[in-house]
Simulated scan of single mutants.
Amino acid sequence: MKIIAVGWNYQSHNAEMAQKAIPQAPVVFTMPETALLKSGKPFFLPRFSNRIEYETELVFHISRLGKNIAPKFAHRYYDAVTVGIDFTARDLQAEARAQGNPWDLSKGFDYSAPIGEFLPLPDQPEKAGNIDFTLTLNGQRVQQGNSRDMIFSIDRIIAYVSQFYTLKIGDIIFTGTPAGVGPVQIGDHLEGYIGEKKVLDFFVK
Rank of each mutant, 00 (worst) to 15 (best):
F44S: 11
W103G: 01
A128K: 06
F202A: 05
T177F: 09
Q140L: 15
P26Q: 08
D91Y: 06
P102V: 07
P46L: 06
P125L: 06
F202D: 01
A80K: 09
G108L: 02
N50G: 14
E196Y: 12
R47Y: 15
G40D: 08
S162P: 08
D132F: 01
T166D: 11
K67M: 12
H189I: 10
P42F: 13
I4C: 04
A74R: 07
N130E: 03
L167N: 07
P46E: 05
I173N: 04
Q11F: 00
H61I: 01
T30Y: 12
D201A: 09
R64G: 08
P122I: 04
L200D: 07
T136Q: 12
V6D: 05
V161I: 15
A5E: 02
G180Q: 06
A5N: 02
H75E: 01
L105K: 15
V6R: 00
P114N: 07
A35M: 12
A98K: 14
G129S: 00
T136S: 15
M150G: 07
A18K: 15
V59N: 04
G180C: 11
G108Y: 04
Q124A: 13
I151C: 01
D155G: 04
D110V: 14
F60D: 01
N9W: 03
A80P: 08
L37K: 02
I4P: 00
S112V: 05
I151W: 02
F43M: 07
I52S: 07
V161A: 02
Q11C: 01
K38C: 12
N138E: 08
L135I: 07
N138C: 10
F152D: 03
T34I: 11
F118W: 03
R90K: 14
T175I: 06
E57K: 00
S153C: 03
L45H: 13
F87Q: 01
G40W: 04
N9E: 06
F87K: 02
R76Q: 15
N130M: 03
L65V: 15
T136Y: 09
G129P: 04
D91R: 08
A94T: 14
E95Y: 03
V83A: 00
T134L: 12
V81R: 00
I151N: 02
R64N: 08
P122Q: 02
V181T: 14
N14M: 15
M17F: 09
M150L: 01
P183G: 12
T175K: 03
P42H: 10
G66W: 08
F109M: 06
A179D: 13
D104N: 14
I3W: 12
R90C: 11
E196H: 13
P42G: 11
L105I: 14
Q140A: 15
G182D: 06
I186T: 11
Y10C: 02
R156E: 11
E33K: 11
V6T: 05
F87E: 03
G116W: 06
F73W: 14
F109A: 04
T30N: 11
R90L: 13
R141L: 11
G180W: 08
G139L: 12
D171Y: 08
K168D: 11
E196F: 12
F152Q: 02
V161S: 03
D171W: 09
P122K: 01
M31Y: 00
E126R: 07
D79Y: 00
